[in-house]
Each structure stands twice: as structure tokens, then as C-alpha cells.
């Protein structure tokens, strides 16, 4: 299916994409997750043919399509601001790609009706797009992109402008549509919840490169770098010093106390490393290996968020007192060495 090979692109003298390679398989939804300005939208536009890479290739089924113009690629793109045509009605917007394919009018009409049903907008056909709410515009944009039956569907932060509840509803709908139609898709966002909700596979984009790739669960559970862990908010990042080698791993010293870490790295005593300490699965226990002073306690849905003096925080079932010194039990699986 789609393959992207060693894409380079700079913008105003700054390197934006520095050798990006990845592939999208049939029916797979790949999510490009990265901070704003990480070049993920640019990458999407290069795949769509709206921008040119300085080097590298875009391939489809093994054939280089880098020089195929956008309109001949048959890749759908849903824009962040939807880019609905203001001079057309909802139905005319959806019909645009079908008209470009010069389909007979009757077929266009039935396809438009079918698509309106797919995105739950039956009866909206004759409306002006300016009369629609944000969520409705979003659905029209999706229907318009789906209409010409693209080989690949791309989403550029499509839900960025919507509120949380609407986002969740639309995400579920989108998942359903993508799965039933079995269309390969690339979804760009900076919102990890969105990414985890929709993606079969997540690519973390950082400093012009793919920092990590894997299923949402893998990526969240095992970030490969300090940046990835911080960006995902996967746990507390602690500065640590290697104390000594142990039977199964290493004993390391942190500001919260000494912990035992199992990892594949080779360290020397006195080395400085970064540890990621899980925020969940931790419980209050007088014999616990972590110790800290509570600075704040916030009630949350399933328990309490407890902030400690050093800036780290944990989710606990019971609320300690502010100012109290607490001891926490951290299971061995709750700590990872990020090197």
C-alpha cells in the first residue's frame, strides 16, 4: 500500500522532517502524533502532493508517485478547518469529487444520499455549509473526502476545533466508518487521547524523526525516550544515579528513595539515568520504598491525585494529609529505565 521513504523537508532554514520512513498497510489506521510544529501536517501534505519534499519518495504499491499531481492521486484529505466550499450546498460539496470523476448525475445523487446517511446527516443536503455547526461541518468534510472512494484517507487534526464530548462521539463514528469500509488512513493529531482512540498503530514524531512506533498500548506502556514519556505523560520522570548491580537489575537512587530497576542497558556505578515511575498501581504502605512529602491532594473520578514536593504525582485510592510524609509501595513493573 502506501510507503514513505526517507522524506526530508526544511522550512525557512529549519529542518522540519529529517528522514521519515514508514508504511501503511491495507485497512490500517496509522496515527502521526507529535507536538505542534513537529512537521506532521507537512508530512501529510507531502503525501497528498500539496507540497514537495526536498528528498525522499512516496510510493503506492511499490510505484513511486512523488511526481503524480494531487488530483490524480486519489488520496482523500480532511482539513483541520474543513475547507468546505462556501458557494456550494452540503450535497454539492459531497458531490464535488464525484463530479470530477464525471459520474452520471443519478449515480452522484444516490451516492450523496448514501454518504449523508453514513455520517448521520440525512436531510442536510440542500443546506448551506455556513448554516452548519462545527460538528456537522466536520461530518460533511468527512463525507466529501469519502465520496470519491479514495485509496487512502488522511486527516489533518480533524477534531481540533471541537469540544470533548463531540470529539468522542465523532471519533467512535470515524472508527466505525474506517473499519467497515476498510480504508487505510493516516490521522494526524497532537492529542494522544484522540490518537489512542483511533489508531491501530501510533508513530511518535519528534525533531523531524519518528521517535517511536507501535500499538497505542505498547507506546504508552513502554516509551523509549524521556521525550516520549514526557509527551505522553506516561509517568513521573525521575533523575537517578546507579548505585550498584543486583541479581536481576540495578539499584538506583532517586529523590524519592532507592528503587530496583530491570533493564537491558549496561550501566556503571555512578551513572546518571532517567527513570519513568508509573503513577498508577501504587499504594500507600508504611514499608513502601518511595517516600515523599504531600503538597496537594485533588479529588478525581477514581481516587485522588497526590502531588509530592519534588513535582511528581501519583493516583492513590486514599487521600493523605497535605504536608504529611508518606511511604508508597511501587511494584517492580512500575519503574522503567529510559537511559
Amino acid at each position: 500500500m502506501l510507503e514513505v521513504r526517507d522524506i526530508h523537508k526544511s522550512y525557512e532554514g529549519q529542518v522540519l522532517l529529517n528522514g521519515i520512513s514508514f508504511a501503511v498497510q491495507a485497512g490500517e489506521t496509522v496515527c502521526l502524533l507529535g507536538a505542534s510544529g513537529s512537521g506532521k501536517s507537512t508530512l501529510l501534505r507531502i503525501i497528498a502532493g500539496l507540497e514537495e519534499a526536498e528528498s525522499g519518495q512516496v510510493l503506492w504499491d511499490g510505484a513511486d508517485i512523488s511526481f503524480v499531481p494531487t488530483h490524480a492521486r486519489n488520496f482523500g484529505l480532511v482539513f483541520q478547518d474543513y475547507a468546505l466550499f462556501p458557494h456550494y450546498t452540503v450535497a454539492e460539496n459531497i458531490a464535488f469529487g464525484l463530479r470530477m470523476q464525471k459520474l452520471p448525475r443519478a449515480e452522484i445523487r444516490s451516492r450523496v444520499e448514501e454518504l449523508l446517511a453514513t455520517v448521520n446527516l440525512v436531510g442536510f443536503g440542500p443546506r448551506r455549509v455556513s448554516e452548519l455547526s462545527g460538528g456537522e461541518q466536520q461530518r460533511v468534510a468527512l463525507a466529501r473526502a469519502l465520496a470519491p472512494q479514495p485509496r487512502l484517507l488522511m486527516f489533518d487534526e480533524p477534531l481540533g476545533a471541537l469540544d470533548r464530548t463531540l470529539k468522542d462521539n465523532l471519533l467512535e463514528e470515524l472508527r466505525r466508518i474506517l473499519h467497515t469500509r476498510h480504508i487505510p488512513a493516516i490521522y494526524v493529531t497532537h492529542d494522544q487521547e484522540e490518537a489512542f482512540a483511533i489508531a491501530d498503530r501510533v508513530l511518535l514524531l519528534h525533531a523531524g524523526q519518528i521517535e517511536q512506533e507501535g500499538t497505542p498500548a505498547e507506546v504508552y506502556a513502554r516509551p523509549v525516550s524521556v521525550w516520549a514519556a514526557r509527551f505522553l505523560g506516561a509517568g513521573n520522570i525521575l533523575d537517578a544515579k546507579v548505585v550498584r548491580k543486583k541479581a536481576k537489575g540495578w539499584e538506583m537512587q532517586t529523590v524519592l528513595g532507592n528503587v530496583e530497576v530491570t533493564c537491558g542497558h549496561t550501566h556503571r556505578e555512578g551513572d546518571r539515568v532517567n527513570l519513568m515511575v508509573s503513577r498508577r498501581g501504587v499504594r500507600l504502605e508504611p514499608s513502601g520504598n518511595l517516600r515523599g512529602v504531600v503538597t496537594d491532594v485533588l479529588f478525581q473520578q477514581n481516587g485522588y491525585k497526590v502531588n509530592l514536593e519534588d513535582g511528581s504525582f501519583f493516583y492513590l485510592e486514599k487521600a493523605p494529609q497535605i504536608g504529611q510524609e508518606i511511604y508508597l509501595h511501587l511494584p517492580p513493573s512500575g519503574v522503567q529505565c529510559l537511559a
Binding site: R45, A48, G49, L50, P69, T70, H71, A72, R73, N74, F75, G76, L77, F79, D81, A83, F85, P86, H87, F96, G97, M100, Q101, R144, A145, A147, P148
Partner: peptide
């Protein structure tokens, strides 16, 4: 004129002339 409109038309299969006649001119 929002350049995304033109880009959207191109991803939907409109070539340069079609973009001009269907989009730029009516707008």
C-alpha cells in the same frame, strides 16, 4: 481566499482548470 479550499478541490480530483472554473472563479 482560503488556500485550503483549492487544496481540498485538488485532493478531490480537480485539475488546474477545474479548480479555476469550479472554485476560484465562482468565489
Amino acid at each position: 481566499l482560503n488556500p485550503r479550499l483549492e487544496q481540498a478541490a485538488r485532493t478531490l480530483g480537480a485539475n488546474r482548470q477545474q479548480v479555476f472554473w469550479q472554485l476560484t472563479l465562482p468565489l
